[in-house]
Amino acid sequence: MKKLVRLAVLVGLAIWAWRRYVGPPGPRERASVSYADGSSVVLEPGSAAFERLASVARTALCP
């Protein structure tokens, strides 16, 4: 039982360290659009469609 707990703690620490030091830097930016038929599309930064939505969203976020 002790071994199992130790293993779980080690796995947790490894995941935390991976996310902290190796994971992608900075905040995650993305856009997603869902439709009535259940389909959806996720847009990643760099695509023209994402930039179009992001430029509109930035105006909404301006104070």
Binding site: G26, P27, R28, E29, R30, A31, S32, V33, S34, Y35, A36, D37, S39, S40, V41, A49, L53, A54, V56, A57, R58, A60, L61
Partner: peptide, 20 residues
């Protein structure tokens, strides 16, 4: 985004400064 007209239900944009 699509050429065929689909009824849109949700748009979410997550950015550095916030999300809409």
């Amino acid at each position: 985004l699509y050429t065929q007209p689909l009824e849109l239900t949700r748009v979410e944009v997550e950015l550095e400064d916030g999300a809409v």
